[in-house]
Nucleic acid binder design. Structure first.
Lengths: 221, 221
DNA sequence: TGTACATCAGTGAACGCGCGTTCACTGATGTAC
DNA sequence: TGTACATCAGTGAACGCGCGTTCACTGATGTAC
């Protein structure tokens, strides 16, 4: 009797256990969106990839496990979709940070800072994107796709811009880009994998690290 | 009737399934050693941490699961013992590489190379040691213990030696050591997590990377 | 305006799996008398 | 030299758990006549 007619079933966030209102006809796709949101939130909250089980996601959305299969072929497919979303966010973060830079080298520095920052702010997502071994990743996650997904080529282009401007010592843009990727990945991954390590001040360590890299890139004087 | 009296039950490597000969009285500790070996081998062969289950280890040794509990309190305890062994090997690899260096900077370079090399040669072990999140690691794995286990302080000392010799620009030895750790970890972890990425020549990339770092460390000229 | 019907958005129960761990036991081995 | 016995090194069966996935179904919703 207290059954009010809500305009959309997406209205309230389900804590778990409570039953979700069935979607109107033709609005079945709304569930897909909610499933993705729940999976993402579950990942963030628990900080544990294992916690994102079909059953847990279904429960968080307020639906039964088989319903997941109405929108995703299997668990891998769901995880893939979650990853894809996060790659998009990740890209926006890095590209956005580089946007207002005064020169190509400063742009590179900003890209690095944004990369590290994103990883530290979204450790579990970062873990899935860059610290998980391939066979555990969704199947269609090819290297090419990955490279394009996280805007690797934009990164190479940013390096090339520095080369063109003579701001860094000559070399192969691709190789230099990989060096820099390895470097920022290193400090990000280390923080994430060892949060309890007695780190000195984080931001200071990051800034000095970036300077170390920039000095390493500097043209022979 | 074909039951020959072998001197030690450790004689043959069990492929799996075949039953292990019971140890003589007082020689129960031999099983402990075999369990550790089997767990390690399982990790190497499958390259999958999940594959190291109590049951799988027991089967590999040729014993029933409950027997594991005669020597290890629980699964965590077993994994911890495996980790500890590998930290020791890891340390020997790095320290051994640095041994014959002509000067402190060259020693640092060698340490870096050995670090990366060890990781690439033992990817699954490296993954457990440095790419696994704390709560999945054995419980008593404190940061202090970890720092001492993988000879972090030797690494700091190696940096200090370079500082003392004026071979690198002045700074805090601990912070510089962390920078270098982050850097070598980065390239190692990236290779391990993305073996299918279209990498250019590995060794060349590593050498250039090390040079980039050394240049970054160089004193202001 | 009323009703039969196809469709859509789910549900409920069950499948088989492998896991860590426990518990009561067995049977060979060495030792004391 | 023979035998009772404590001990040691395991075994066998079972526990409860959560997992991904399947399958036959239900019941609300919109549509055609």
């Amino acid at each position: 009797m207290t059954d009010q007619l809500a305009p959309s079933p997406t209205g309230s966030e389900e804590g778990g256990g409570s039953r979700r209102r069935r979607a109107r006809r033709g609005e079945g796709e709304l569930l897909r969106e909610d499933i993705l949101l729940a999976a993402e939130r579950l990942l963030m909250d628990t900080g544990d990839q294992e916690a994102v089980s079909i059953r847990a996601v279904a429960d968080a959305v307020g639906v039964t496990p088989p319903s997941i299969y109405l929108h995703f072929a299997d668990k891998q497919d769901l995880l893939f979709a979650v990853c894809e979303r996060h790659f998009e966010r990740f890209d926006r973060a890095v590209e956005g940070a580089a946007a207002g830079a005064s020169d190509p080298l400063e742009a590179l520095r900003r890209r690095g800072r944004a990369y590290i920052r994103f990883g530290l702010d979204n450790p579990e997502h970062y873990r899935i994107l860059f610290m998980t071994k391939p066979e555990r990743q969704p199947a269609m996650w090819t290297p090419e796709r990955m490279a394009s997904a996280f805007a690797f080529w934009n990164h190479v282009a940013a390096v090339q811009a520095c080369l063109d401007a003579g701001l860094i010592r000559p070399g192969d843009a691709m190789e230099i880009a990989l060096h820099l990727w390895a470097a920022v990945h290193g400090i990000t991954a280390l923080f994430i994998a060892n949060p309890d390590f007695p780190w000195p001040d984080r931001d200071r360590l990051i800034e000095q690290y970036l300077e170390l890299l920039v000095r390493g890139l500097a043209p022979a004087s």
